[in-house]
């Protein structure tokens, strides 16, 4: 490896790490908030019920929200 490339790689490394770190955090935030729930549903659907057509985003969200509140979800 030439000296110049070595330096470029050294310089890129923290940036690369930062980028990956930010991506991971963003994914975590989306998962924590349930922002990616529809994507997860699609993945599950494709894996387990491949033959049927999945619900679209709006229909799925409506159904989920109604279902989620049929139990104890919040505490004192």
């Amino acid at each position: 490896m030439s000296a110049r490339n070595w330096w470029i790689e050294r310089a890129a490394l923290p940036l690369e790490r930062l980028k990956r770190g930010l991506q991971t955090s963003w994914r975590t935030v989306r998962e924590l908030t349930g922002d990616d729930a529809y994507e997860r549903y699609l993945a599950h659907h494709a894996a387990c019920h491949g033959g049927e057509l999945p619900l679209d985003r709006a229909a799925w969200f409506k159904q989920e929200q109604q279902r989620k509140w049929d139990g104890v979800r919040r505490c004192c």
Binding site: R30, G34, D35, R57, A58, W60, F61, K62, Q65
Partner: peptide, 13 residues
């Protein structure tokens, strides 16, 4: 979150 941007929880919040 239901009609305009379904399921976009972060945006809505």
């Amino acid at each position: 979150m239901r009609n305009l941007r379904p399921g976009r929880v972060i945006e809505g919040s």
